[in-house]
C-alpha cells in the first residue's frame, strides 16, 4: 500500500453530500418543472420564477444543488468506468476528467447563479 496521502475520502465527501442532496431535491424539481409544468397541472409566470431564484437563499440552494450533484455524478462515473472497463489504468485519467468536469461545472454554476 502506497504511503502517499489518499485523496479519495475528499472526493467521497462531495459524492456523499451530493447523493443526499440530489436524492432529496432533484425529484421535486423533476416533478414540478419536468412534469407538472408541461402538463399544465401547475402554472407559473417566468418572471415569478426568475424573481424566486434571485432571492439570495435560492441562489445558494441552486448552487449547492447543481454543484454537489455534479460531484456526485463525477465520482459515480469515475467508478463506473473503472468497473465497466475492468481496468485499473483507466482510474487516474478518469478521475482527472470527471473531477475537472465537476469543478468547471461548479465555476459555471457559480457565475450563472451570481449573475441571474
Amino acid at each position: 500500500m502506497s504511503s502517499s496521502r489518499n485523496n479519495d475520502p475528499f472526493w467521497w465527501s462531495f459524492f456523499g453530500a451530493g447523493g443526499v442532496f440530489s436524492s432529496f431535491f432533484i425529484p421535486i424539481h423533476v416533478l414540478l418543472l419536468g412534469i407538472a409544468l408541461p402538463l399544465a397541472w401547475w402554472t407559473v409566470e417566468p418572471e415569478t420564477l426568475l424573481e424566486l431564484v434571485r432571492h439570495p437563499l435560492a441562489r445558494i440552494y441552486l448552487f449547492m444543488l447543481i454543484s454537489l450533484t455534479l460531484f456526485h455524478a463525477a465520482h459515480r462515473i469515475r467508478f463506473t468506468l473503472h468497473d465497466l472497463l475492468l481496468a485499473k489504468q483507466i482510474d487516474t485519467p478518469a478521475a482527472y476528467l470527471c473531477y475537472t468536469g465537476a469543478i468547471v461545472g461548479t465555476v459555471v454554476t457559480l457565475v450563472t447563479v451570481w449573475t441571474l
Partner: peptide
Amino acid sequence: DTLLAHGGAFDCTLI
C-alpha cells in the same frame, strides 16, 4: 491508518 490509505475502504466502488 489502513482504511483511509490507498487500498483502504475508499477503493470500494459499491458494487
